[in-house]
Amino acid sequence: MYREKITWKKIGKFLRYENWVAPMYFLVCMPSVTSAYSRWFLLGLGISVCISYLLDGIAGNELPAMLYFCPMTKQERRIYFRKHFALRIGTLFLFYWVIMLVFFVMGKVDFSLAAEGMIYLCICGIPPMLRVGNGLQKEGLENFYGCDLCGNLLLVFGYMAVFFLQLEFYMEEYGDIVALVHTLYGKIIVIGMLGLMLFYLVRFYPKVEEYVLDYERVCYVRSQKENALKKKRGVRIG
């Protein structure tokens, strides 16, 4: 039986995967919330997002590019995308409510808090899914290359929204922002927020520029680099 060898390189690659930023954020932020209820619902939120991403990773839930090539009418293709999108969001919501139900039975959360968590889930969970799902909104087939960019931008907005909502939590608990910054967890949050913004700036800004320059030009630049490499190896260029 074929079995893939697990190496540190592969583990590193997996952990670098940007989608893990969201669940990690939840897990890091979770203890900072002093209210027990908030803590449990953030935990539930984090677990459900983690499971959803994990399933994506395991099941290879990315929207296959093959769909753009298969013989389908535009209507058929759109229906497929909608189903795909609905399935991904449905999985996330399902896990969230199952976990919340378990916590509820344990007496850790009430339903009003669970419902509030749903709003957070929508803000932080849907944008990453849109990375692949937003292709459904477009009919032009070449948008396959563009939808990734839109999704990434939504992801950034999603995280920003979560940060601000998180701050709102603190304001309720500590009264003012200065007091928050003076707590250990407050520092974690502020540093985390700045770090994440920096991460996205570094990670996605060049990408935005690439897409603005348009996909074909990007390919050209890439192929020029490959050419230089091939020339070194003595391969003739076509």
Binding site: F69, E142, E216, Y220
Partner: peptide, 17 residues
């Protein structure tokens, strides 16, 4: 490279309109 071969292929395959 960059002459437009792949673009033309994608036009033929209907991926680009």
């Amino acid at each position: 490279n960059g002459a437009g071969k792949s673009t033309l292929i994608k036009l033929i395959l209907g991926v680009y309109s």
